[in-house]
Each structure stands twice: as C-alpha cells, then as structure tokens.
Design a binder for these strands. Structure first.
Lengths: 387, 387
DNA sequence: CACACTTCCTTCCTACGGCGAACGAATTAT
DNA sequence: ATAATTCGTTCGCCGTAGGAAGGAAGTGTG
C-alpha cells in the first residue's frame, strides 16, 4: 500500500505559505462575492504584486470569474472579480431509515443536484455510485462528503443507528473516503444541524449555540467557539439522558428525560387529550388545543417547564448563550416560545436566548456543506506547531 | 496614543514564518528536554541549514543551553542542547478574600518565587509592584500574567466576587496588562484548576475533562478539545444552578443544587449528625462518620447520589469522558469514589471516568502557568485566514 | 597507529517568493 | 487636450529555504 510514513515536513515550506495565501484570497472572495484586486489587497494584506499571479491562477482554476469593469468615479475602473461558489462542490448524504438522500451543493449551500435512493444493498456502494453520478462532470470539484447518520455516530453505542444497518460509524466514512478520494465526515444528524444553523441559519452571529432537537428522542448539537463539540465519546448533546427528575426512569437506550418529554411521548398525551389518530405534528396540535382546552393548556405548561429545565441545565454546564429549537420544539408558536424564554431566563445563571431554528430540513444540508468545506481546509490545521 | 489602526498585514509575512519556526523548535525542545540538532531536524522537519542560525539565536536568548557532547556509537557525537524552562517566566496571581498570593513560575510550572500579600489598597497597584519585585532580574523573561479570581470573572454578574473588591473582571486585567506590558488573563479559579489538571495533573492524557469543584458553592471547569471553554457569557460550569430536583430552590446568587449539596450545606448536616464545632473538612468527617453511623452512611449515600446526578448531567451535555473531583469532593475515600463511579456509569449515556484531581492547591498555579504560556503563543492564532 | 567509515554540524550557494517601486492602462475632471 | 487619479502589472532587489559539499569529531579495523 501507499502507506508511506509521512516525512515530518517543514512547518513553513513554500507550498504551505502559498496555500495559505490562496485560502486567504478565496475566503475574502467568498465573503465579498464581487470585488476587485484592489479590494483584495486591503482585505488580505497581500501586496498587489503578489496578487497578480495568484489571481491569475485562481481564475484559471475557476475560483474567480472576471467580470467587466466596475464603477469608478475617478481613475482606472477596477476590474471586478466574482467568486464562483461552484468551484468547490460538496456532497451531503443523509441516512434515513429506509433510504438515503444525497445532495450536491456548492460552497454557498446552494443545491446543484439532488436524489433520493432506496436503501438496497451495501450503503458504501450506494453512496459511491450515487455521488459521482450526481456530481457528473463537476466531480473534479468535489471537495468533501459529509454523511449524516441518525443517533450517536461513534462511541456511546447506546443509540447507534441500527435502523440504517450501521454497525459502526467509522468504517463507512473510511471506506467512502478511500473509494472517492476526498475527505469524508460522518456525524450525528443533530450535530450537523447545529453546524448548519451556525453557518447559515439562526446562529451566524454567535460563536456558541446549542440546538435542541426534539423528535422521537431528544438530542442537542453543541457549538462552542465556532466549532461543533462532540465530547470525548461523541456523546455530547445526549440531553435526553439528563436526570432532571428523580422520578423519571429511562429504559434500554431511551433516556429518562426523553422518555417523558419527547415528541412521541407528547403525542401519546395529545391523543389522550383529543382522542383520534396520532396527529402528524403533536406539538403543533397541542399548541392548538391549548387555546381552548384547559387541560391541554396545563399540559403545555408542563412541557414548557420540562423543556425549560432542560435548557437551563445546558446553560449551567456550557452557557451557550443562544438555544435554537428544532424539530418538534420549533413548532411552538411565538407565545409559547416567549414563555419558554421567560422560564429559562428566570433560572439560568447567565443570559440565554431561546429562539426557533430557521433552516428546518435544510439544516443538515448546510451543516454538511460547512463540514465538508472545513474538512477541505483542514490540511491547514496541521500547520502550526502544538503549543 | 499609539492607537495605530493595525494595517492588515500579510498572512505570511517573513516575521511570521520566522516566529513559527522558532516556536516549532522551542516546543520540540520543551517536550524532549535534552536533544541534539539532528533530533531537531527530525522533529521539526526543518533542514539542518535552517536550524544552525536559529539554534544559535535561541542559545543567545537563553532558551537553549549547550551541554557537552552526547553518547555516540559511531560518528561525531551530537552536541546536546538542553531546554531551559527559566527562559520564560509567568506570574500566577490568585485573589483570595483577604489577600493575594503571587507566584513566579518557569514554563514547567516550577515555582521560582512566591509571596503572599495582604490585600491593602488598590489591587492593580499591589499586583504591579509585587510581580516585578518577585521576578527581580528575571523580569525581562516574564511572558504573561494569569489572575485567578473567585466566582464568575465576566458576564453573569450573579456570583462576581465582591469579597475581593472586584467590580468587574475586565478592568483589572487590562490595567495590569498596560502597566506590565505582557499578556494578562483573568479567569475563574475553577477554570484555572481545570486547565492545571489538564496541563500537569490528572488530565494530561485526555483532551476533554470536567473538573468538579465543591466548596461553599459548586462549580465546574470544562476542558473540551484541549481548551478551557467558558461559554458565551463566561458562565459555563455554573453547575450549582442545575435544576436537578423540582423541589430544590436557590436564592440570591446561590443555585438550587449547591444550596443543598455544597460543602457548607453538608457541613450543617454533619454538625446535626455529630454535634460539635463545624469540622474543618465536612466531607472527610462525613466519610469517617459513615463507617460507624447508619444515619451518616445513609446521608453519604444521598450526597453521592446527588453528585452522581450532577456528573451525569454534565456527561449528557458535553460528554467529558473524565470527571475530576476537586475541593471537598476530593476528600472522598476510595470506596466512596468507587460508588460514585458506579452510580455515574449506570446512568451516563457514555463511559465517564470519575477520579480525584491530584494537584490540590497547586492546580490554580499550574493552570495559570498554562494560560500564560498559551497567551504568549497566542500571537500565532491570528495567522490563519478564517475558513 | 593509520586509515576508512559514520554521523553531526556548518558553510556555501542557488533558486524562489514577497514586496517596493516604477510603469503602463483606463477612466474622470478641467 | 491635458492633468489627475486610481488600478493593475512588470521589474528587480532582497531575504530566506534548503540542497550540496565540506569540515569536525568520534568509532571500528588492519
């Protein structure tokens, strides 16, 4: 095999510094979208002389596109450069119980291609054929693949996703990486949602946030200092296991808290309050019922109180500053969110803002894009010597 | 003032790459302690030709000391270089109710000088005279100051330390920085303990840990991915506020959990179990009593159960993998720690190791040293372009 | 003891990249 | 038209990285 022992290369080799400059320019262009070389010198600190050949390369590689001359009030007009998000594509694969959904996105998170495949045969095979197929002639631009798996993706075997035939998170990622030759990240779907909201949703303006996702279970994704934190065993955010009431008991893989306050648990109660079929959106249904029915209103209060204690617990441990409600929790109406906020503010040791997540289903995709893009840039992280 | 707007300098200026190489060599030398230039080429990847002048500089500056030739089985013996920890000194200042204790340490955490001063007059004045005085002729080597303050050091005004006359954490740090001209870090003492145990105590082998400090209040220090995490408002680790029992109530600045399970709360109960003066170490006393007294044993069980639920809560949110017991919690005997471990393992969603912290009083100092050293190296962190 | 051999460190030298400076280009103001 | 102004490029200097060669200081072998 090509199992060459990596020779400890110089920390400041020429290629590295070149790569740093490239990324410096690309990152500036990604933010500003359309700019001139003159603006690049201001933003990156690189001299015009350095930029000339660098920009030439980037245009040749498709990262930048030359547009016409821009406006000028005096002097030579600036030749505008437009950032081309399609120069780097990423694949986001979401594993669901009976199918996988696969999307190719540009580096803005814009979906270039999309497909849903039924889960037949080997997952790795499926991914490794679907992704190149979808990417088509854009394949050379593929920079990374992010795979979202339900449940804990590594360690903490409790809630590992058996539904999709995952025995272990790792092998899939590694196999796909070898077959496709690009960085692959496998993670919990909730973590990806948190990353997505941080990158492109309700958390772009903060460095720390906690996304609380209520579904059949309850999980949280944690972003601290701009990075998703998974904890030592990848089980960070398993807030469904919080022991917030001595009376609650979990059972085989279900935590004590989520046993009572997850979407499914709420659904049961809602059915008992308003007999009939299990509603599609139990929380929304409960909010509706609560307007007219005192018992429903009382139960909604209970739910909000329970969730608020969950949020306060997280605030005590990590102080995320902002909590995003996702999944069933995002179905609360404004009044309910306000009450939740009030409950949290009353008990949390530091200001904690509660609001709904905004990306919904697309959060995972955006998270995957952000993962894949940062995985592509991760080569840089080995640049600095360990302190 | 010299309030020059920092010109956006090139991300790869010459000084920077030079600095990177220097730090690369220093960091290798710090780890290996005694090594030759040949080893340095292997460790850093720098070419011998690059190393020669660099090492010359470092010797001149005192970072490295030339020792005699080392052993050689064939060929020219390697000229050994020894890392000199005293080339960089840091000051660790710990603010206590009525006094400040001030220590000068080398970069190994070895104490070079030590003094305790009564708290008279302005704190900043006190620090800015004591530190240079202690450092003496080593002052040029002073690389940073870390100040440990009880309570929350910024934001979350609830438990800000009024006892030491701190109005706000920030001004002190900034004032000292301006007067002494070196980086200054001000932080919660518990955070510093966590950093200390991570750098030199019971957490050197892991990247994540949580230090649980039980005293008059209960606080935790959180290290994730090798860094102390303070959360958005600096209130991460305020676990005394965890709402783990609906019956518990906190009051003015005291959290509901710590109101019942802190060292002071336990002390009261111990006094009622064994009338007399409040024991010096209530937890140790309780452990002792429990051996003979059934009521005490039962209460000890309660304490362990409560603490275990606290630890489990932290495990659910951040999955630290290892929890270190500090302060009064470190007074548990082995049997009690084992029982605590068992309770935690039964309820935590992922493996969580419970053990005692090992540095005791010296944890803050080691934490301060590690802070100050990384603050000195922090100039590097601005090197990479934001992704 | 002389000689080869090995390993380590240094010095010399070359190539290359960053950036200052001068220059050409393209437009507005007068 | 001409000046003024701003942009972008080319030129060339300088400093640094690192290859190559050579000196230095030992060990093994005839």
């Amino acid at each position: 095999m090509t199992d060459v022992v990596t020779p400890p290369t110089s920390p400041v080799s020429r290629e590295r510094s070149k790569e740093i400059k490239r990324l410096s320019v690309i990152s500036a262009a990604r933010q500003v979208r359309v700019l001139s070389r003159a603006e690049l010198t201001e933003l990156t600190g690189l001299s015009p002389a350095t930029l000339t050949p660098l920009v030439r390369d980037l245009i040749a590689e498709g990262y930048l596109i030359e547009r016409g001359p821009g406006a000028s009030r005096a002097g030579r007009p600036r030749a505008m450069l437009e950032f081309n998000p399609r120069a780097e594509l990423v694949a986001a694969v979401s594993l669901e119980p009976a199918r996988i959904s696969c999307e190719i996105a540009d580096s803005d998170g814009g979906v270039v291609a999309h497909r849903t495949v039924r889960l037949i045969g080997d997952i790795v095979d499926l991914i490794c054929t679907a992704v190149p197929d979808l990417a088509g002639d854009g394949l050379p631009a593929l920079r990374g693949v992010a795979i979202a798996a339900p449940g804990v993706s590594s360690g903490g075997a409790v809630r590992l996703a058996p539904s999709v035939g995952l025995v272990e998170g790792r092998p899939i990622g590694e196999s796909v990486r070898q077959r496709l030759g690009v960085p692959v990240v496998v993670d919990n779907d909730v973590n990806l949602m948190a990353a997505g909201e941080h990158a492109a949703g309700a958390g772009t303006d903060v460095a720390d946030l906690l996304l609380l996702h209520v579904a059949d279970g309850i999980g949280a994704g944690l972003v601290l200092d701009g990075q998703v934190r998974r904890g030592s065993g990848g089980a960070a955010g398993e807030v469904g296991f919080l022991p917030l009431d001595p009376a609650d008991r979990g059972h085989d893989g279900i935590g004590p808290f989520e046993a009572r306050w997850s979407e499914s648990a709420i659904a049961e109660k809602v059915v008992s309050l308003a007999p009939g079929r299990r509603p599609e959106s139990p929380v929304r249904a409960l909010v509706g019922l609560a307007a007219a029915d005192d018992l429903a209103a009382a139960y909604l209060d209970e739910v909000l109180a329970a969730w608020s204690r969950l949020i306060v617990s997280c605030a005590c441990v990590v102080d995320p500053g902002r909590v995003l409600l996702s999944g069933a929790a995002a179905e609360l109406d404004d009044a309910a969110v306000d009450r939740l906020q009030a409950l949290v503010s009353a008990a949390a040791p530091s200001p904690t803002e509660v609001r709904r997540a905004v990306l919904g289903d697309r959060a995972v995709l955006h998270g995957a894009v952000s993962y894949a893009l940062s995985a592509a840039a991760a080569g840089l992280s080995t640049l600095l010597p360990a302190p």
